[in-house]
Design a protein around this nucleic acid. Structure first.
Lengths: 242, 242
DNA sequence: TAGATTGTTAATCGATTAACAATC
DNA sequence: TAGATTGTTAATCGATTAACAATC
């Protein structure tokens, strides 16, 4: 590495990377934009779009500014154009081939989930270790034996794997997916997966989400208690304003 | 309890609040701790537990320090005691009654998901708008008509609602849950829900997770391109170290 | 030109991390 | 006491937000 051809400023910004927090919100913006497009809305202000997406407008504008300057001052954003730009940034211009491993209740639900198929993804293979499930048709696709995992990944050029197996076999499945060439994994099994650092793992953990809710719920329920305890701990104090 | 209502330092810390990022990791620690307990491990260092949970040890210690000082310097943490403390902090000492609205593929999967039931939660009611589903038994519970939502919430003292309906009706379902007294909602429908600020909503959005993966996948695929472009843009340069 | 709204700056806030004193 | 490991400090990093100059 020597002198370095310094790239132009906006390119540099993109190269330096869109912040993770922003990336996580782009799909939300995209959904809101698609809804607006379906309603026939052609122009939207950052204020309106932010409301639809459930964020504040400063955050929205900052997020969009990482992609480029796609708005018009005094006017707003062209809905169709922004749909295109956000889709492109997210890599949804092409269809990503997906494999689902594990066709239990959850895998079954995922295979049938419209949102997967609708935009940017195509489920190309379903595999399961249970012989009773092999051969069954789910969402128009035949469930194949887990032994075919590698060849299915290769044949369909699959880059994204969805793990919907029991936790006990998730790491093994993950290892096989990775060595077959899958480099992005969506994990529904309640386990921490170990992967090489170039592999991206996202985790969806239903019981974790519930436990986070329980924490907040407890706080609400507890609030009355705590207040009462504090009041009782104050000798000669009649009440505390709430 | 006499004069000094001034809470001791750790209590004060707890009152000031556990950071959200920490709360989100506590369930992960709890799972790792439970696994260790099942293996008969009685003591664990922050280094070991951090590895099991997939975080670094400094973060783990900082997180645990918000709950109190439950470790022993030079020794580590007692697994059983820490399970108890983390569970208590998360509000899992009691069982939270849960209602699931929408018994399609996903709702069905959720009702049967072991992780929900296992610790701290009890699914008490299932409702659906589809007359064909009403009366069907799912996970040992009879699906009731959506019209009974309010009375089921009241009867079972339900505080946590899971929305697994189509996006089109999610807001309406949410409104009904909230006015029935539910104050924590786990939303699987791909919509932004509007709720009063005292209501906590968590969102699980399968297609958003996939889209985030697509973004990173695109970067990897694109990386070769970008590198090549840069190299070609450098006259007289042979190669760039990767 | 006047009004509207973006894109960006800079201040603030919260989360992460390395390092190490405290202490078992 | 010596070795080990926690709990905490402080530095750093990244994300959020209000405010406003740029500009349509």
């Amino acid at each position: 590495m020597t002198s370095a051809p310094r790239p132009a400023s906006p390119r540099a910004a993109r190269t330096r990377g869109v912040p993770e927090a922003t990336v996580a919100r782009l799909p939300v913006y995209l959904r809101a934009l698609s809804a607006l497009a379906d309603e026939g809305v052609s122009t939207v202000s950052s204020e309106e779009l932010a409301t639809a997406a459930g964020v504040n407008s400063a955050k929205l504008r900052k997020d969009l500014s990482y992609l480029g300057s796609y708005g018009t001052r005094g006017v707003g954003y062209d809905v169709g154009y922004l749909v295109y730009q956000v889709s492109r940034e997210l890599g949804l211009s092409q269809d990503w081939p997906v494999i689902i491993v594990g066709l239990g209740h959850l895998g079954h639900a995922l295979a049938n989930y419209g949102g997967f198929v609708s935009r940017g993804f195509a489920i190309r293979a379903l595999v399961d270790a249970d012989p009773d499930l092999v051969g069954v048709e789910v969402a128009g696709l035949e469930v194949r034996p887990i032994g075919e995992l590698e060849q299915l990944v290769a044949r369909h050029g699959i880059a994204i794997g969805v793990i919907a197996t029991p936790a006990t076999v998730a790491q093994e499945v993950c290892d096989r997916l990775v060595s077959a060439g899958v480099s992005s994994i969506l994990n529904f099994a309640p386990t921490v997966l170990a992967v090489p650092e170039e592999v991206e793992v996202r985790k969806v953990d239903l019981s974790i989400e519930l436990q986070i809710l329980a924490f907040h719920e407890q706080r609400k329920v507890g609030a009355a208690h705590v207040t009462r305890e504090l009041v009782e701990a104050l000798p000669g104090r009649a009440a505390v304003s709430s």
